[in-house]
Write a protein that binds this DNA or RNA. Structure first.
Length: 659
RNA sequence: GCUGGCGUAGCUCAACCGGUAGAGCACCUGACUUGUAAUCAGGAGGUCGCGGGUUCGAGUCCCACCGCCAGCUCCA
C-alpha cells in the first residue's frame, strides 16, 4: 500500500531544526542582535514541539561531521565518487586561478558539495561578478594546459613549515588540528599546491564542464565569531550536457519560485511596513488556503481527531510551566502588560492543549485524545534568514497533540504516519523519505520509555516500506521523532511533517489518567504536524505545481469567456449555474479579442476556459478549453458541470489529479 | 546578525562623464464586436527606499538607516 520513494535528489528544504537540536537555543545572546521585542536569550535546547521544522529556506541537508571522526581520516584518502572527485579538483583549479589572478589571497577549504563545489578565500577586497568571469577564463587556461595533479606525503612538520613560508595561516590552523603523528598530504598542480587529502583526477584536462555561480560571505569553519571569508560557489559536471541540464534545473527552480508566482498570480505578499516574515494572504491565495484547510479539517474529523482552539497569547506563568521561558526564550517575542500581568505571544500551541487536557480527571477509557488545531504562532527569526513563505515569523501550524497511554503509543504512531502519507499523497506528492532521530546525550524521561518509543517509531518506518535513515542522537531532549521529507517534481526535498514523542510536557503539566487499576498514570504525549505550516506547505505546493494548482485546489477553477458583448448575459448565467454547483468561477467579458482573453486565463493558469459565442448561446452549451491547450468537445452546461465535478474531485489518498 | 549585490510608475526594466525621469505591460477613456496565448488610439500614473551631506545643480557622488536577494562548517 505504501509507495517506495526513489533515491537521489537535491537535498533542499532541510533546516537546522531538522537536525533535532532545534536551532533557537544555539543562538548566543550576543548573536541575538537587536530584536528589541524579544526576551533575553536563554541557554538550552529549545523545546520545539511540533517543531516549526517547516519554515526553512531551501538549504542543503547534511549530517554534521564529528571532528574526531575527521581527525581519524587525516592522511587517509577518503573515497569520493568520480563526480565528487572531479568537483573537488575543479575547486583546486579555481583556487589556483584565484591565487594566480589575485596574489596574496589566502586559501582555506574547497570541498565538493551535492550541487557542485566551493572554495573559501581570505582576501581584503571582495570578488565581483566580473572577477568570477575572469577566474573562469583563467581556469579554462589551466584546464587547457593539462597539468597533472600530483600527491605528496610528508611529515607534518615539513608541510607545516612549507605553508608557513607561504603565509597560508588557515592551512596552518588545519595542520595544527591534525594528530601529531599524522602523515600530511598535499597536491600540486603545475607550480601551485594545496594542502589536501585528495583524491583528485589525474590531470586538469579531465575536468569537465564547470561554471562559477555566486560569491558570498562565509565564516571560517562556519562560526560567525571567526573571520568572514569569500565563498565562491560553482558547479561542475563531466560533460557540458550535464552542466546545461543542471543550469536548466536552476532556471526552472527560479521560474517556479513561490515568491515570483505569488506575485504573478496575486496569491500573497509581504510588506515592509507590516514587517518581515509576516504574510498578507490575497484573495486568490486565501482561497487556496481555505480549500487546504477545509480538506484538512474534514480529514481530521474522519480520522478520529477533534478540533480545538486556543488564543494567541497567554500569561507568562503558562510558559514558565511549559519551560518555554527557559529554553525557548530566544525565539519568543516580548510580552505585553495586561492589568499588571505579563502576557506572551505563543510560539507553540502545546501548552494550551496540555492545559485543556488537565480540565477534569481523565480515564483510560477516553484515551487517546487527538486534538488538532490550525494554530497561528509567532517566532523570532533572525532577519537574514527569512525567505518568502518558507521561513517566516508568523505562521499557522497544522498542529495536533495526542494524549494516550504508553500501551497505545505504537498503534497511534502508526496511525499518524499513515494519516500523514494519506494527506500528502492527496496533494500530489509521491516520493518521501523519513528520518528517525533517537535519544541525544542530554535527555529527560525514563530510558525504557525512550526505548519503547524508538522501537515503535522504527517499526512504523519499517512497516511503511518507505526509505528511511536513522540519525542516532538526533532527537530532541524530550523525545524521539520521525521527520518526513517529501520530494517535489524537481527532486528537491522539503521537510514538512514531523511526529515527536514528548516525555517532558506530561511531567511539567502533570498530565495523568486513571487506569483500569484505579491508579494514576503518566500520559504519553505525541506532537505532530503533517503539512508543517500552512505557509511553508503552500510555498512547496506552489513550486511543485508552478502555480498550476490541481483543479480541486485552484483559486479559480473555470473562467467563462464571452466572445463579444452579445453573449454577456449568457456568460453570467453560466457562471452563476456553476457557482451554484459549488465551483469557483469567474467571467471575462468586454472589448478584448478572444485571443487576449484566452491568453490572460492561460497566464493565470485557470484549469478551464469556457468560450461562449453565438453558437454556444443558441445551444445552451460551452466550448471548454483546458489550460494544457486541449479542447473539450462542445457540451451542454449540465454536461460540463459533470465534467468539472469529476475533474475537481479531491484525489484522496493520491489519485492522479485531472487537468 | 554578518559579507556582498540590489532598491526608479502596480509589474519588468531604461536614463553616457552629475544637467532637472522614460519604455513595455497593467490601469482609465474611446473606438472596434472579435472563435482559442497580446486590436487600435488617447489619457493618467513617479516623495527616483528613507534621512543627511558634497555641488550652481544629485536617480547618478559620499555617510547613516530601512528593505529585498544570495550566501554564512556537504570540511585540508
Amino acid at each position: 500500500m505504501l509507495v517506495v520513494a526513489a533515491g537521489g535528489g537535491e537535498g533542499q528544504g532541510a533546516q537546522g531544526e531538522a537536525k533535532g537540536r532545534a536551532h533557537g537555543g544555539e543562538d548566543t545572546p550576543a548573536a541575538a542582535g537587536p530584536g528589541r521585542a524579544r526576551l533575553v536569550a536563554g541557554p538550552e535546547t529549545p523545546h520545539a514541539a511540533p517543531p516549526m521544522s517547516d519554515a526553512s529556506p531551501p538549504s542543503p541537508s547534511s549530517a554534521p561531521v564529528d571532528p574526531e571522526l575527521l581527525a581519524g581520516l587525516v592522511g587517509a584518502t577518503p573515497t569520493l565518487s568520480p563526480l565528487e572527485t572531479l568537483r573537488h579538483s575543479t575547486a583546486h583549479v579555481m583556487a589556483m586561478a584565484v591565487q594566480t589572478l589575485f596574489p596574496g589571497t589566502k586559501v582555506t577549504i574547497g570541498p565538493s558539495i551535492d550541487t557542485g563545489f566551493y572554495y573559501d578565500f581570505d582576501r581584503p577586497t571582495p570578488f565581483s561578478e566580473d572577477d568570477l568571469r575572469a577566474i573562469e577564463a583563467e581556469m579554462a587556461k589551466i584546464v587547457a594546459a593539462d597539468l597533472p595533479f600530483e600527491r605528496h606525503e610528508r611529515d607534518r612538520a615539513e608541510v607545516r613549515a612549507m605553508f608557513e613560508r607561504m603565509g597560508e595561516a588557515y592551512k596552518l590552523e588545519l595542520i595544527d588540528s591534525f594528530p601529531p603523528d599524522a602523515t600530511v598530504s598535499y597536491y600540486t598542480t603545475g607550480d601551485w599546491l594545496d594542502l589536501c587529502r585528495g583524491p583528485h583526477v589525474a590531470r586538469t584536462a579531465e575536468i569537465g564542464a564547470f561554471k562559477l555561480l555566486s560569491v558570498a560571505g562565509a565564516y571560517w569553519r562556519g562560526d560567525e565569531r571567526n573571520a568572514q571569508l569569500q565563498h565562491i560557489y560553482g558547479t561542475a559536471f563531466a560533460t557540458q550536457a550535464e552542466l546545461d541540464a543542471h543550469l536548466a534545473l536552476l532556471e526552472e527552480a527560479k521560474r517556479r519560485d513561490h515568491r515570483r508566482i505569488g506575485k504573478d498570480l496575486d496569491l500573497f505578499s509581504i510588506d515592509e511596513v507590516i514587517g518581515g516574515g509576516l504574510v498578507l494572504w490575497h484573495p486568490k491565495g486565501a482561497r487556496v488556503r481555505h480549500v487546504i484547510e477545509t480538506f484538512w479539517r474534514e480529514e481530521h474529523f474522519a480520522h478520529g481527531y477533534e478540533l480545538v482552539g486556543s488564543p494567541h497569547v497567554a500569561r507568562e506563568e503558562l510558559w514558565n510551566t511549559s519551560g518555554h521561558t527557559t529554553f525557548y526564550k530566544e525565539n519568543m517575542y516580548a510580552g505585553m502588560d495586561v492589568d499588571g500581568q505579563q502576557y506572551l505571544v505563543k510560539p507553540m500551541n502545546c501548552p494550551f492543549h496540555c492545559t485543556m487536557f488537565k480540565k477534569g480527571l481523565r480515564s483510560y477509557r477516553e484515551l487517546p485524545h487527538r486534538w488538532a488545531e490550525l494554530g497561528t504562532v509567532y517566532r523570532y527569526e533572525r532577519s537574514g534568514v527569512m525567505h518568502g513563505l518558507l521561513r517566516v515569523r508568523g505562521f499557522t501550524q497544522d498542529d495536533a497533540h495526542l494524549f494516550m497511554t504508553r500501551e497505545q503509543l505504537p498503534v497511534e504512531l502508526e496511525r499518524v504516519v499513515e494519516f500523514c502519507l494519506h494527506i500528502l499523497r492527496t496533494f500530489g506528492f509521491t516520493d518521501f523519505k523519513l528520518y528517525l532521530a533517537t535519544r541525544p546525550k542530554d535527555y529527560v524521561g525514563a530510558p525504557e520509555m525512550w526505548q519503547v518509543a524508538e522501537a515503535a517509531l522504527h517499526a512504523v518506518l519499517v512497516k511503511s516500506g518507505l526509505p528511511f535513515e536513522v540519525d542516532p542522537g538526533g532527537g530532541a531532549f524530550y523525545g524521539p521523532k520521525i521527520d518526513l521529507k517529501l520530494k517535489d517534481c524537481l527532486g528537491r526535498e522539503w521537510q514538512c511533517s514531523t511526529v515527536q514523542v514528548d516525555f517532558n510536557l506530561p511531567e511539567r503539566f502533570d498530565l495523568s489518567y486513571v487506569g483500569a487499576d484505579g491508579a494514576k498514570h503518566r500520559i504519553v504525549m505525541v506532537h505532530r504536524a503533517l503539512l508543517g505550516s500552512i505557509e511553508r506547505f503552500f510555498a512547496v505546493l506552489t513550486e511543485h505545481y508552478a502555480g498550476a494548482f490541481p483543479v480541486w485546489l485552484a483559486p479559480v477553477q473555470a473562467r467563462v469567456i464571452a466572445i463579444g458583448d452579445r453573449q454577456e448575459a449568457y456568460v453570467e448565467e453560466v457562471a452563476g449555474l456553476l457557482r451554484q454547483a459549488g465551483f469557483r468561477v469567474d467571467t471575462h467579458t468586454g472589448g478584448d479579442k478572444l485571443g487576449a482573453k484566452i491568453r490572460q486565463a492561460q497566464l493565470e493558469k485557470i484549469p478551464f476556459m469556457l468560450v461562449c459565442g453565438d453558437k454556444e448561446v443558441a445551444a445552451r452549451a460551452v466550448a471548454a478549453r483546458a489550460r494544457d491547450g486541449s479542447q473539450l468537445p462542445v457540451m451542454s452546461i449540465e454536461a460540463f458541470v459533470d465534467h468539472l465535478r469529476a475533474a475537481a474531485a479531491i484525489p484522496r489518498g493520491g489519485a492522479a489529479s485531472v487537468a
